[in-house]
């Protein structure tokens, strides 16, 4: 079984159709209760993560599932008379209405402000039961992202890029000198010179590939050292580093305030780095 023991939380990999130990919990994201036997089974491949009153499975792959108040990096797909259509990596294209921008503009002027292919950072305002998404560009840290370079990673790895209280993203920014904006949809906007962007891309690829494993911080540190021509310090990868307690082995949601329960609806409840993220986008 995919048990990746080590320092922090025990990580159990579950596959679709595998029974999940319920212990009186309700089925949360990535799980379902069978009508045949009343037991709870996983519906996606991911890491088991009980969070009373729900058992959840944090998926290892899959599309971005928008959630209210997520900050996401979108790419303009089409321009309408009063709105733009954004690709935010959700199942659907997302309209951004001109009233959701800081600009004073008239009907038909959308194309003068944002053109297809340009990048923006927006906030998810809400999703209805038909999964229609509303986004806005009004607010601190939101707006058009000019210049820079966009990299895509798995949305489920976003909390690992940010790290506990933004520790990982700060380390990457300080070491490389690049500026990062991380959208909850797994799009990372990087600003810097070519070399800085190259280094950040390598780091993000590492996190995307190995974010579910133990000892991530140490491996990122080692990569940054190698890139900068420093000798990587040898660390015991099985032990999380003592100072930060991060070590890539904490549960994805540790350190953030609990979200209020959302009822029986299978709502995704796994992108929980909102506060740190907001800080990041402000100086990012």
């Amino acid at each position: 079984m995919g048990r990746g023991g080590g320092g922090g939380g025990e990580r159990v990999l579950v596959l679709p159709g595998e029974e999940v130990p319920a212990q009186g919990l309700k089925p949360g994201f990535g799980t379902y209760r069978s009508r045949d036997d009343g037991k709870i089974y996983a519906s996606v491949m991911g890491l088991l993560s009980p969070r009373p009153p729900f058992v959840r499975v944090i998926p290892l792959s899959g599309r971005y599932i928008p959630q209210r108040d997520d900050m996401v990096v979108g790419v303009i797909q089409a321009v309408g008379p009063t709105y733009w259509l954004l690709d935010i990596r959700a199942p659907h294209f997302t309209p951004l209405h001109m009233t959701g921008t800081p600009w004073q503009m008239e009907y038909g002027e959308c194309g003068e402000y944002l053109r297809p292919g340009e990048t923006v950072i927006v906030r998810v305002e809400g999703i209805d039961e038909q999964r229609r998404i509303g986004v806005s560009m009004n607010g601190p840290g939101l707006g058009k992202l000019e210049g820079g370079y966009v990299v895509e990673i798995s949305p489920t790895k976003v909390p690992r890029v940010i790290g506990k209280s933004g520790s990982m993203i700060q380390m990457i920014q300080q070491d490389t000198g690049a500026k990062l904006v991380v959208g909850q949809n797994g799009r990372v906007w990087i600003e810097g010179d070519n070399d800085q962007i190259r280094r950040v891309r390598e780091v993000l690829a590492l996190i995307d590939r190995e974010g579910q494993k133990v000892g991530l911080t140490d491996r990122v540190k080692a990569l940054l050292d190698t890139q900068a021509g420093r000798t990587p310090q040898h660390e015991d990868y099985d032990r999380p580093s003592r100072d930060s307690g991060e070590g890539g082995s904490e549960e994805v949601h540790d350190g953030s305030p609990p979200r209020p329960p959302k009822g029986e609806v299978q709502g995704p409840t796994y992108f929980e780095e909102g506060q740190e993220f907001e800080e990041e986008t402000q100086h990012g």
Partner: peptide, 11 residues
């Protein structure tokens, strides 16, 4: 489908 993270009853 499982690799794509699409929810399903079982493989």
């Amino acid at each position: 489908l499982a690799d794509a993270g699409i929810p399903m009853v079982d493989l």
